[in-house]
Design a protein around this nucleic acid. Structure first.
Length: 420
RNA sequence: GUGGGCGUAGCUCAGUUGGCAGAGCACCAGGUUGUGGUCCUGGGUGUCGGGGGUUCAAGUCCCCUCGCUCACCCCA
């Protein structure tokens, strides 16, 4: 052990060279959503605990046992965000964004927190990229969110992800179906925990991954067969729009998302190379969420995609970006006076738009040249007392070994021309 | 929350029936007091995760604990 401290249990951290893929993925996401007309929103990492309780749902595992909650010095109960959507909707309402043109299209990214047992691809602090389109029921927007996610995956070089699609019904048709399902489940020999879940949130029982439970619910009634006319029309249009974009999906009538606010469209992106935590992202429609948290009726659709899992998927597919040292020129000073001159030359090169670095720590020539080599720079800028006296520096092209003396006053101009 | 596997150098790992902590890579220095990659020489850089116990002696055996990991559950 190298220090008496370790990172808290279960957090994800990225250090070079792996961090390059993380950053590349996040940058690519910003480009993809910006192209699609989504504006950036920066949110607090913690919110009033009640926002999540009422938004995400009192009965969900996320709220009942996975939140990092604390009481601040003012006696307020705050919780680290376990997901993004509730906070985005809260901010939209608070700033009145929904009073302008609709839909309000927003994106954000950052860490979220859930107290769970860590596992491959599952962390207590994990990262998501998020997208929300608020203020329209238009099913084309449902399809747009999926298309944006796919464009991002494609830009990252991922090819193996699958889209699972379902409709969870709405306030009109779900209650009747829910009662029907509940009745069915009560007749099954389920274990106590599952039986309890059947009472609180029967749809989630359908999503159980245990084979014995799967077998029991094989003949359960499905929401998709009990959608009201409006929900069915909505769902059909979403599917039609996806087909228009040549986006492939798998109808998964048992797909149920773990957060209470989802209604109508629900979807999940799955990657086959990730083991148990194969869901790399998920989203859906949350037309009742605004009202749940005390706002006006305001439909919405959005997703959260796991950055950690996306990076794992990139690594699994062998398309993860590797750290690239963006260095054009590397300064190699010999002696104190030269070090001082190289230090300013490097700064001037940077100001001129040339990526530059130099050897620090009074390294010998050999060590400094080694640093030049490892930096990936095209040119080494070598300066010793002898050069200094002559008013020149040695510019060495590292690939060829070719070296020329260049007047100090021309260094920046000449190197700027060479690296272009 | 429940179960399985694993913790030895920066990394990947070896370490016999308990007997002086090792290898490869990486790193540092030198060969060359002004020239990198290749090569040669030298250097181990360590709380064997932590604590306790057994023993003449523990990396090795026992207990506890922390962490990592895989699966259940849940989900990103």
């Amino acid at each position: 052990m190298s220090s008496s401290f370790q990172a808290p249990k279960g957090v994800s951290e990225y250090v070079p060279p792996r961090s390059a893929a993380f950053l590349a993925a996040r940058d690519a996401y910003a480009r993809a959503v910006t192209r699609a007309g989504y504006g950036y929103i920066e949110l607090p990492v913690f919110e009033d605990t009640q926002l999540f309780a009422r938004g995400v749902g009192e009965s969900t595992d996320v709220v009942t046992k996975e939140m990092y909650s604390l009481t601040d010095r003012g006696g307020r109960s705050l919780s680290l965000r376990p997901e993004f959507t509730a906070g985005v909707v809260r901010a939209v309402l608070e700033h009145g964004l929904h009073k302008g043109q609709l839909p309000v299209k927003l994106w954000t990214t950052g860490p979220a927190f859930r107290y769970e047992r860590p596992q491959s691809g599952r962390y207590r602090q994990f990262y998501q990229v998020d997208l929300e389109a608020i203020g329209t029921e238009d099913p084309a927007v449902d399809a747009e969110t999926i298309a944006v996610a796919f464009d991002w995956y494609r830009e990252l070089g991922l090819t193996r992800q699958r889209l699972l699609l379902n409709s969870l019904g709405c306030r009109e048709c779900r209650p009747a179906y829910r009662a029907l399902l509940q009745e069915f489940l009560r007749g099954l020999p389920l274990d106590a925990a599952t039986q309890a879940r059947a009472e609180v949130n029967p749809l989630r029982v359908l999503d159980d991954k245990r084979p014995e439970v799967r077998a029991l619910v094989a003949d359960a009634p499905l929401m998709i067969d009990h959608l009201c006319a409006a929900c069915k029309a909505h769902h059909d249009t979403v599917r039609e729009r996806l087909a228009d974009l040549a986006i492939e999906w798998v109808d998964e009538p048992r797909l149920v998302r773990g957060l209470d606010y989802y209604m109508r469209t629900a979807y999940e992106f799955e990657h086959p190379l990730l083991g148990a935590q194969s869901g790399i992202g998920g989203g859906g429609r949350y037309d009742g969420l605004s009202e749940d948290i005390g706002g006006p009726p305001l439909p919405g659709i959005g997703f959260g995609l796991g950055l950690d899992r996306t990076v794992l998927a990139m690594e699994a597919e062998g398309v993860a970006a590797t750290a690239q040292r963006a260095c054009d020129v590397y300064g190699v000073p010999l002696g104190e006076a030269a070090q001082r001159r190289v230090f300013t030359l490097v700064a001037e090169l940077r100001r001129a738009g040339v990526a530059a670095d130099m050897a620090y720590g009074g390294k010998g020539l050999k060590g400094a040249m080694k640093g030049a080599d490892r930096s990936g720079a095209r040119f080494a800028l070598i300066l010793g007392e002898r050069d200094l006296a002559e008013g020149v520096a040695q510019v060495k092209e590292l690939a060829t070994g070719e070296q020329t003396a260049v007047p100090l006053d021309d260094i920046v101009t000449i190197l700027k021309g060479k690296v272009r």
